[in-house]
Design a protein around this nucleic acid. Sequence first.
DNA 1: ACAAGTACTTACCTAAAAGTATGTATCATG
DNA 2: CATGATACATACTTTTAGGTAAGTACTTGT
Lengths: 117, 117
Amino acid sequence: MANFKENSTNQFNKRLVTTKCPVTFIVNKMGNRWKPLVIRELFSGTKRYGELKKAIPAVTEKMLIQTLKELEADGIINRKAMPVVPPHVEYSLTVSGKDLEPVINEMVKWSLKYNTH
Amino acid sequence: MANFKENSTNQFNKRLVTTKCPVTFIVNKMGNRWKPLVIRELFSGTKRYGELKKAIPAVTEKMLIQTLKELEADGIINRKAMPVVPPHVEYSLTVSGKDLEPVINEMVKWSLKYNTH
DNA sequence: ACAAGTACTTACCTAAAAGTATGTATCATG
DNA sequence: CATGATACATACTTTTAGGTAAGTACTTGT
C-alpha cells in the first residue's frame, strides 16, 4: 500500500506555479475550454445567457454556467440579473476583461501564423 | 446503466475548440503547468536537461521529460543529443518558440496588472 | 390545471493531466 | 567490480476538468 501524498503535491504545485508564473496566472483565468469563446462573444457587447448559449451551441448548460461563474468570480465579467419573470440576465466584460483584448490579439496572431491546420 | 458517450463528446469538443479557437490552440501548445517555465528558461539561451531540472526544482523528471517531448513534438523547442557518455542533451527554442516572446510579454503585462496576490 | 419560457442546479460519471516510485543504459574511474 | 554521472522510461495512482441526465423556480397565457 504505497503511501501516496500526491494530492498535496499536486495542489501545492498548482498554487506555486499560479502565484509565481504570470503566464499560468492568466491561463487559469481565461484558458479553459469555453472561456475564450465566451469572452470573444462579449467583446462585441453585452449578451444574455440565452444568446451566449445560442452562439456557442456545443457547450452544455452546466459548463456554460460554470464558465460564467468562474469568469465572474475572477472579475472578468459582470452579471446583471433583472428581477423579472421569466428571468433576464445580462453578461458583459469588466475593465480587466476588456483589457484581455491586446493579449488575445497576440495569441491569435501566433496561432494563425503557426496553425497550418 | 446509463449509455455514456462522454468520451467522444469530450474529444470532439476538444478538437472542435482547438481547431476553431486560436486562443485554445496556443494555450494547448504552451499553457500546461510546466511549459511556460521551461520556455522561460530557454528564452535566456540553450540549456541542458540537468540545468532545466535544477532551474525548476518542483518539477519531477517524468513531468519535465513529458513537457520537453510535447514542446519538441509541437515544434517549439529543439533537442540536440550529443553521442557521449554520460549523455549530454541540449534544448533550445525554435523560431516559433522564440516567436512566443511578444505573446508572453502581453500575458505577463496583464497578470502583473491584475494579480494582486 | 398545465404548458411555455428563462436561467439555472445537482448528483453522478469518465478521461486526461499530474504525481509516485522505481528501473534502465553507457562508460570512466577508483 | 561497484559507483557516479546523465538523461531518460514505465507501471501504477489520484485529482480534476469536462460531460450526462434530470430537476427547479417563478409567472404569464391558454
